[in-house]
Design a protein around this nucleic acid. Structure first.
Lengths: 185, 185
DNA sequence: GCGCCCATGTAACTAGTTACATGATTCA
DNA sequence: TGAATCATGTAACTAGTTACATGGGCGC
């Protein structure tokens, strides 16, 4: 079973929204899905060239007077077809690694204080994320640019995932901190 | 900033519980932390050899009559020290990728039915996991072998993470399925 | 004058995955 | 008979990361 190059599909998906440059794609990803998907230029640009080579997108150079040129990519029929096929396929689950949990699993080797600190940090991160999700949701629902976005409902579903996730993590952190505080006594 | 080889610390952590062979470590990981940490033999065995070479563990060959020999590794003082140092360090967060969310984000490209199916599958997976977590918790609390486990509280904390996580995901799936059902009408 | 943003790109790297191999024993 | 478990290992691979380079424009 060969591993899948997922960057390709993330890129095709972005290009299905509108034609974009590599730089645009990165910006869009960072704003819209960065809490569950990351891409970096070092991978993005080569993948874009491959996508063009495979006829999944057409490139058009936008002359920037003064500014650098921009390579704008337009998804082709072939590209769209390949995207849809991938989207229809069942989700390929793969194992993940959560360093915080590994450290906590061996937590009795270190001080409860140190563990509490890690949990506190985790909690604060998720409190921040939660605020972000709520902000983005507001923006999506109010700004016309987004409220007419074709896939708005789906965007909101992924946002809701983030909210559920962060809330659960905050609750778990609080519960665990309490447990550890008790242990100290 | 060089990337960290985390397998090393997972292995050292396991050896801090008790001396084990590579095979044992894999079994232990699969039973105890597989829902947030994975290791495979192809990586485990080379890392174990490196750990021994670096003086972080000592190897002792256990003659198996009939059965294959087992290489049992014992953590050294140096190994323990390196483990503790790593455990004390702040958690190194790195981005993750959730394929289900990527597919849902572009969900308007395909049928709501297909999306619902994906959510249904996700829900069922987490219902299964939840049952597993509850079983493991029962075992840990009842079986003497585990109830005297040094880091039991910490094990329970990581289990609780799994429970919070799966419950949140189940709730999100149900909510999202409802949203999509409404959309279909 | 400094640093950030725009915009694209390359080279070097590596941690981890997959596939394969061996061979005895146990269980259905 | 055949599959699963025990037990260790190697070779080939690769997707993605990091670090670096370029250079003009813009804001403070």
């Amino acid at each position: 079973m060969p591993r899948i190059k997922k960057t390709k599909y993330a890129v095709l998906g972005m290009l299905s929204i509108k034609p974009m440059s590599g730089y645009d794609i990165k910006q869009y990803i960072d704003f819209s899905i960065s809490y569950f998907w990351n891409e970096n230029y070092g991978n993005l640009y080569p993948v874009l060239r491959q996508i063009e080579k495979d006829g999944l997108a057409d490139k058009q150079v936008e002359q920037g007077d003064g500014k650098p040129n921009r390579n704008i990519y337009y998804i082709t029929e072939k590209g769209k077809k390949e995207l849809l096929e991938w989207l229809m396929e069942p989700v390929n689950r793969q194992p993940h690694r959560i360093e915080l949990l590994l450290k906590l699993f061996f937590g009795h080797e270190i001080s409860a204080e140190n563990c509490i600190q890690k949990l506190q940090e985790e909690k604060e991160i998720h409190e921040g994320l939660l605020r972000e999700y709520e902000n983005v949701e507001k923006v999506l629902k109010s700004e016309k640019k987004y409220s007419s976005h074709e896939g708005l409902e789906f965007w909101l579903i992924t946002l809701s995932y983030g909210k559920h996730d962060s809330k659960a993590k905050i609750a778990w952190c609080e519960e665990s901190i309490k447990k550890l505080e008790k242990m100290k006594k």
